[in-house]
Design a protein around this nucleic acid. Structure first.
Lengths: 204, 204
DNA sequence: TAGCATTACTGGACGGCGTCTAGAAAATGG
DNA sequence: CCATTTTCTAGACGCCGTCCAGTAATGCTA
């Protein structure tokens, strides 16, 4: 989601080669966020530390807040693919649950956005960026359910919203819990159990 | 949430009387949003139509996006009170469900923010404002559950997130469904049934 | 080797939001 | 009439995200 074009491709890109890369910008930003906080860091600061003009920053990221999600976006982007690969023998709620658990296994641990959340004072735009991710994931899951369940649309909407909310909540709780803990995927799986139990009768 | 000080009080306010009021600004804004869309309307436009300086606008609202939620914020603000009044004979999940249903009954129908959502192109800041509401409501419900249930914190977090998400989803679905429909409260109540069923065993 | 196409970077400008400040305006009470 | 209190105003600020015209750096082709 965040990056515009990360791949220097395989070979022989026609035009001028990139001076920077998205990871360079992420690194510079991470340092600055720790030093000065998210709100205390301007896009200009980040670009300057990365040795790049401000305008160039926006060639790599659509918004400053995308930096916070740079490490989790690739995992989230896998959801549609993962859902499509779910075997049809699984019920819709089971498939949704398994897919979200699989995503949890792909996440970097801990996700930078959740760790730095306490340290760096993340502003309203950071929250908006988080919501954007939630909605994207939600849409992917909702599409999948619509194709595999004959339940009423409103019911599918509700289950989708609940599942995403619980998965996100479980992830945050897992990060906040600190060091001695099992895999995140297990935590997400356990958290989704009551939701799937409640909806199994109406969705499947 | 939105308004800073609406009451012209009963009498004998010491200082200079208010030239405007938050509802005046909301009215001007609503007109402009319909004419030009949300993103196409500047704070300056709104203030000018209301006959007020731009800086004055921010005496009444903390952000432009608060205008969208001006009509539902009062209802949402009632949640803590409503929760406190829930009889203790209700289980935690039942109380939460009843409280959310009661909030639904307090909402203006249809809420401007949901209706205009399609018409006016609402930008990222509008989404962020929505998330802010969700988090506030979530916090209130979470506090209540923590005081009435002995379940693990992570479980309460999950149920809270699910309940809020489902209630919001049901509200949106109800608005989108159009004219022939029962009360919103009924729709929210029905939507919450599976969630409460799934969590009754672990929370109550 | 020279030019061409393609792509990336630069610098500057723009409009908009939200914050802030100093001061003027409009009321009340002594 | 003056002091107090509160609101309103005008203007400036920093920042974000967008845009554009111009320049730099590469591969390809003649």
């Amino acid at each position: 989601m965040g990056t515009v074009n990360d791949s220097n491709a395989l070979r022989t890109a026609p035009g001028r080669p990139r001076r920077s890369s998205s990871s360079t910008l992420v690194d510079s930003a991470s340092e600055l966020f720790l030093e000065q906080g998210y709100d205390g860091t301007t896009v200009d600061d980040i670009a300057r530390r990365a040795g790049v003009a401000r305008a160039t920053f926006f060639n790599y990221f659509r918004a400053k807040s995308d930096l916070l999600w740079a490490d989790v976006d690739p995992a989230l982007a896998e959801l549609p693919r993962i859902l499509d690969l779910m075997p049809t023998r699984l019920s819709p709620t089971e498939a949704a649950r398994a897919a979200l658990v699989e995503i949890a296994g792909l996440l970097p641990v801990p996700p930078a956005v959740l760790v730095e959340r306490s340290t760096t004072g993340a502003g309203a735009d950071a929250a908006a960026a988080g919501l954007e991710r939630l909605l994207t994931v939600r849409l992917a899951l909702r599409r999948f359910l619509g194709s595999r369940s004959t339940a009423a649309p409103a019911v599918l909407d509700a289950f989708t919203a609940a599942a995403i909310a619980v998965a996100a909540s479980a992830t945050v709780a897992w990060v906040d819990a600190g060091s001695p803990r099992g895999p995140l995927a297990n935590a997400v799986d356990a958290a989704l159990a009551p939701v799937c139990a409640g909806y199994a009768a109406v969705v499947d």
